[in-house]
């Protein structure tokens, strides 16, 4: 039998949210953060207390291991766009950093080929 799903599975109907209240209305992150970018804490992050009751504190805690932007968004239950803006701030403030290279539109062919070859070797080995 072919399962049939309708849009409601994906598009949660007209929920009133104020997603960018947390970012003071900013919708653009200060740095370019792809969904697969790996974020980790800088030493500075451990030199202060972070509240588990506010979302910025939860984001910093979520970065205690090496964690991707997408995983952080899932962990703190905030939309990707909002998490990106907050992560961008935390990186600029020196609490977090991007901990791995990702491909971008400007990656050289050598870099691209190298990463794809590594991925291929990795996939064949698992």
């Amino acid at each position: 039998m072919t399962p049939h799903h309708d849009d409601d599975e994906h598009v949660h109907t007209a929920r009133i949210v104020r997603p960018y209240a947390l970012t003071a209305g900013r919708t653009r992150a200060s740095i370019d953060l792809p969904v697969e970018a790996i974020i980790e804490q800088q030493p500075r992050a451990t030199e202060r207390e972070w509240s588990e009751h506010d979302q910025v504190g939860q984001i910093v805690s979520a970065c205690a291991g090496r964690t991707s932007v997408a995983e952080i968004s899932a962990a703190v239950h905030l939309p990707l766009g909002v998490v990106r803006v907050l992560l961008g701030d935390l990186v600029e403030q020196g609490y977090l950093k991007v901990a791995a290279t990702t491909l971008t539109d400007t990656s050289s062919t050598d870099v691209r080929q190298d990463l794809i070859e590594r991925t291929l070797r990795g996939l064949r080995a698992i």
Binding site: R15, V17, A21, I38, A70
Partner: peptide, 27 residues
């Protein structure tokens, strides 16, 4: 949304998974 943060929005869900392909590579 920046101009009108109260505007109703919908969300689109995206599922994702992870495969660690070594010490220094995650897919």
């Amino acid at each position: 949304l920046a101009a009108t943060p109260m505007k109703s929005t919908t969300t689109v869900a995206m599922d994702f998974g992870r495969i660690t392909l070594g010490d220094d590579l995650v897919l």
